[in-house]
Computed example of a mutant assay.
Amino acid sequence: MERQIFEVHKKVPFYEVNTLNEWHLSAMLNGMLAVADDQLDATGAGDTMMHDLNMGWVITQYHFDIKRFPVSKEPVTMTSWADSYNQFFFYRDYALKDAQGEELVHIKSSWVMMSFATRKMVRVNPDIVKKIQAPQVRGVKKFLRIPQKDYSQAIHKPYRVRYFDIDANQHVNNVHYFDWMLDTLDMDFLTKYVIDTVDIRYEREIHYGSVPESYVLQEPDPEGTGITTFHAIKTGDELNTECQLHWHLRKA
């Protein structure tokens, strides 16, 4: 089956960059997710069809490889394609390239179909994924296993879930978690280091009115040139999301 790649060209919006002129991680992810959403709509497998079936697409895991973040008003090309699917999981890739065609960001992701009636995952509907030419596979793709950490002494911040945090699936949109996690790190850290890999696993959804807390731990690399941060979003004792970010020192 020939891979169906969907492509969008745009410039990085000036209002979505940080103090160093780089595209915010969450804003960049939103832009790349929009490419996949356009593909789903164009092939008749988007929100309208899913909601008619009383279902929604829900992310379970991401892995990012980041060479650099594009900057304000930089022209970029964003692509997305269906990698494959099995009985319960749908796998999708995303790529972001600069004007010279160099890949700056690559994302691998794993999704499930969720029933709105039960709020639980259901078997992948083959009639939907065939619309976007996703080949069926037997195995389950492996993502990095994030190590369990003791967050009892970790820095943490509470966040009240607002109406504006909720998406059409009636839970906190997956992109908001990144802002909550990075907000536990101070400005000195964020301007000294830059992210090169992201691994995140979504465990349980968060709903309107909840007050989850964002936790962070830091572990410097032995050679002193980078650092790994471990993140957890919890509501009470319940784990909602866990994440591992690797950072390297910015070039002077």
Rank of each mutant, 00 (worst) to 15 (best):
Y193C: 02
I128K: 09
L40Q: 08
Q87D: 11
T43V: 06
Y163W: 13
D183V: 02
V8Y: 10
Y85N: 04
A95L: 02
A34L: 03
N18W: 07
K251F: 01
E102Q: 13
A34W: 03
Y62W: 15
R119V: 03
Y91R: 06
Q244P: 01
R68M: 09
Q170F: 09
V161F: 13
R138V: 04
T191H: 05
D196I: 05
L182P: 04
R160T: 12
Y177C: 01
G101S: 05
E219K: 15
K67W: 02
E238N: 12
G236M: 09
H246Y: 15
D37L: 07
H9R: 11
E102C: 05
T79R: 15
Q133C: 03
S72G: 15
G209C: 10
L40K: 05
D83Y: 11
Q133W: 09
M32S: 06
D83S: 08
T228F: 11
D199A: 15
V124D: 12
N18H: 07
K11P: 00
L33C: 11
D37N: 08
M113W: 06
Y215M: 00
D167Q: 05
S110Q: 12
T19W: 06
D221K: 08
H248S: 12
V211P: 03
D150Y: 12
Y202I: 00
F6C: 04
R250H: 11
T48I: 08
P126G: 13
A252E: 15
Y177R: 03
D127M: 08
H106R: 08
F89P: 02
A99S: 11
Y177I: 03
P158Q: 15
M187N: 07
T118I: 03
L182Q: 07
T77Y: 10
Y193K: 06
T43F: 14
S72M: 14
Y193M: 06
L25I: 13
L217R: 06
N174T: 05
L185W: 10
K97I: 00
G226K: 08
R201G: 02
L245H: 14
K108N: 12
N21V: 03
P135N: 15
H207C: 09
H24K: 08
D165H: 14
R204P: 00
Q39Y: 06
D41Q: 12
E223N: 13
M50Q: 14
E103R: 07
M121Q: 14
D93F: 08
I59C: 10
F88M: 14
K251Y: 07
H106I: 00
V175L: 01
A95D: 04
V12S: 04
H246F: 05
G31L: 05
T118R: 13
V76G: 01
M78K: 04
W57L: 12
L40R: 06
L20P: 00
E103L: 00
V35Y: 07
F69Y: 13
K97S: 10
Y208F: 15
D199M: 05
F90G: 02
P126Y: 14
A168D: 13
D127I: 03
K11T: 02
W111T: 00
T184R: 05
G56F: 09
S152V: 01
E16P: 00
P135V: 12
Q4Y: 09
E203V: 14
P212V: 07
Y163M: 10
R162W: 12
V194C: 11
Y202V: 00
N173Q: 11
